[in-house]
Design a protein around this nucleic acid. Sequence first.
DNA 1: ACGTAATGTCAAACATATATAACATAATGT
DNA 2: ACATTATGTTATATATGTTTGACATTACGT
Lengths: 79, 79
Amino acid sequence: MTNEVRLLRFLAQDMTQAELGKRVGLTRQTIAAIEQGRYSPSLDVAFRIAHLFGKRVDEVFHWQPGGDQGMETASSDAG
Amino acid sequence: MTNEVRLLRFLAQDMTQAELGKRVGLTRQTIAAIEQGRYSPSLDVAFRIAHLFGKRVDEVFHWQPGGDQGMETASSDAG
DNA sequence: ACGTAATGTCAAACATATATAACATAATGT
DNA sequence: ACATTATGTTATATATGTTTGACATTACGT
């Protein structure tokens, strides 16, 4: 699970980690950890960050099936 | 934070909570709790569920700014 | 009436996200 | 040289997601 948080932060007038954290209700340490992919945030936090940058969650956070586990699509069963 | 999991599960050949849980790597209790909005899942789980139904995260989980806290948009600061 | 499948719900344990506090470095300005 | 700002990083504590095990209800088929 990678993300564009750091890039988006630079594009938003070089917003600092502390400033971003303050705006979305997180600490700067948590922002740093998220940017480095040390863990994936909660869905709620993902929505807050994406909304702040005017993006969709999937535009900010990039997930790949099997990047963690392996599983199929619902349609792969029906069709 | 509401979601369409239950609806999507019915549309997918009446998949059971247990079956959905098995496919995305969760227990049926966790699926039930998520459907009822008792808590919002992790971003990873949200991606797995959305992917299973061939939807985007924001199509499955509906979040509203201020539904939990109050905060602004990045552009609301710039102009 | 009985068994089974699907769901709701609860309590306790466990895993992970997040906060807080502290210390470190590099870059900037005085 | 010194202070300040932004960031990286660690340890510990707290909050919350998730699992496991159990028990209850409803609906269906026999």
